[in-house]
Amino acid sequence: MTDRKKKNSIKDDVLFLVLKIVVFLALIAIMLFFVFGIFRCGDNMMSPAFKDGDLAIYYRLQKEFQPLDVVVIEKDGETQIRRVVAKSGDSVEITEDGLKINGYLQQETEIYTETLPYTEGIAFPITLGENEYFVLGDNRSNAKDSRIYGAVKKEEIKGTVITLLRHRGV
């Protein structure tokens, strides 16, 4: 009788362990698919902050974005990482002098290239409507960003980047 109780006890323990593992994996899947996202950077338009091959982990539930936030966007069927430089109600102008937000020339300490307008892009100045954001790549001389396709709608922003996993030749 005691052998049978031990076998049932072991069987119950194994089933309980399997149940715990299944619940844990389900929670991880929910977190990855609904709360967080992972995006592999496929270009150098955000260099040196993000480089080709880097993995960005982003938070999907944030709904308000501020200038300097780095976001993952879905624009024209293409997923990109870009930096928010202006939000709803702001006026953006890019001249030979650089980036002006609401008439003030921006001093961006983390940007190492000049911010100049593109000849084939949108016309400036532009005033952002409700739930619109102006995004730029950090590599300003080589980025496909709001200078080309205009303002990004809130619905096109997938989330805010919270961390970066640097690709090191793997």
Rank of each mutant, 00 (worst) to 15 (best):
R82T: 07
I122R: 00
V85G: 01
E64H: 12
R82V: 09
R83T: 08
G42H: 10
G77L: 03
G98M: 02
K63V: 09
V22Q: 05
Y58G: 00
S9I: 10
K7N: 08
P67F: 03
I101H: 01
K158N: 09
R82K: 12
I73C: 05
E156K: 05
S141I: 14
V14K: 08
E130Y: 05
S146F: 02
L99Y: 04
L136T: 00
D97Y: 03
V72K: 04
V152M: 02
D145G: 00
E78W: 08
Y58T: 06
K87L: 12
I162N: 07
V170E: 15
K144N: 15
V70Q: 13
K144T: 11
I10A: 06
D138V: 04
S47F: 13
N8K: 13
F36D: 05
E155H: 07
K100H: 08
T163R: 07
K144W: 12
L61D: 07
T160C: 09
E110N: 15
Q107V: 12
T113W: 09
M1C: 12
R40A: 12
A86Y: 01
D138A: 03
K154M: 08
T79V: 15
T127W: 08
L61K: 14
D3F: 14
I57M: 11
Y112Q: 10
A26C: 08
R168I: 11
